Simulated assay, not measured.
Amino acid sequence: MARRAGRQVAAEQYFASAMTILGRDGAAGLKIGPLCRSLGVTSGSFYHHFGSWAGFVRGLLQHWEDEQTGRVVELARATSDPLERLRVVRRLAVELHHGAEVAIRAWAQLDPEVGRAQSRVDVQRRIALEQVIGDLVASREDAHRLAVLGYSLLVGFQQTCSPGDRELLGRMFDDFQGLVLAHAAPHGTR
Rank of each mutant, 00 (worst) to 15 (best):
G170E: 01
C161Y: 13
L129Y: 02
T160N: 12
Q68F: 15
G70L: 08
F50I: 02
R190M: 07
Q62T: 06
R58H: 08
F56N: 01
F50T: 01
R7E: 11
H144K: 15
T79I: 07
G23A: 11
A103T: 03
A28S: 03
V137G: 00
L60F: 15
M19V: 10
V148W: 07
G51A: 05
F173Q: 02
Q131D: 12
G115F: 00
T189A: 01
D165K: 09
S119M: 05
S43M: 10
S43L: 05
L96P: 11
H98A: 05
G188C: 04
C36G: 08
Q158T: 13
I32D: 02
V132F: 05
M172H: 06
Q159T: 04
H187T: 13
L154P: 00
G164T: 13
L30C: 06
K31E: 12
Q177V: 14
L92P: 04
C161M: 14
S80D: 03
R145G: 08
E167G: 09
T42I: 13
L92I: 10
A128T: 05
R120H: 12
L61P: 06
G70A: 06
A10W: 14
A10D: 15
T79R: 05
H97R: 14
D142C: 03
V57Y: 11
R116Y: 12
L169E: 07
Q68Y: 15
R126A: 07
R90P: 02
D81Y: 10
E130P: 07
S43F: 10
R24M: 11
G70M: 05
V155C: 10
V137T: 04
A18G: 00
G55S: 07
R166S: 11
A54Q: 13
G156N: 07
R140I: 00
V121C: 14
S43I: 13
R85E: 02
G26W: 02
L136G: 02
F173I: 01
R171C: 04
L146C: 06
F157M: 11
E95H: 14
S45W: 05
L61H: 07
E113C: 06
F15Y: 15
V132M: 09
R190G: 07
G29A: 06
A11M: 06
A147R: 04
P34T: 13
A117S: 08
L83Y: 02
A11E: 12
A27F: 04
Q124Y: 09
A147Y: 01
R71K: 15
G26I: 00
A5N: 14
V88P: 00
V41G: 03
L92V: 11
H97N: 14
G40Y: 05
L86A: 12
I32C: 01
I32W: 00
D135Y: 09
I21G: 04
P112M: 03
P186S: 06
A185P: 04
A103D: 07
E84C: 04
R71G: 12
Q158Y: 09
Q131F: 10
E74H: 12
G44A: 12
Q62W: 11
L153E: 08
L60G: 06
S139M: 08
P163W: 11
D165P: 11
R126Q: 12
A184R: 03
W107H: 09
V88I: 15
R166Y: 14
Q159F: 06
E167M: 14
H144F: 10
R71D: 15
F176G: 03
E113P: 03
L168R: 13
R125V: 15
A5W: 15
S38D: 15
G40E: 06
G188I: 00
L110K: 07
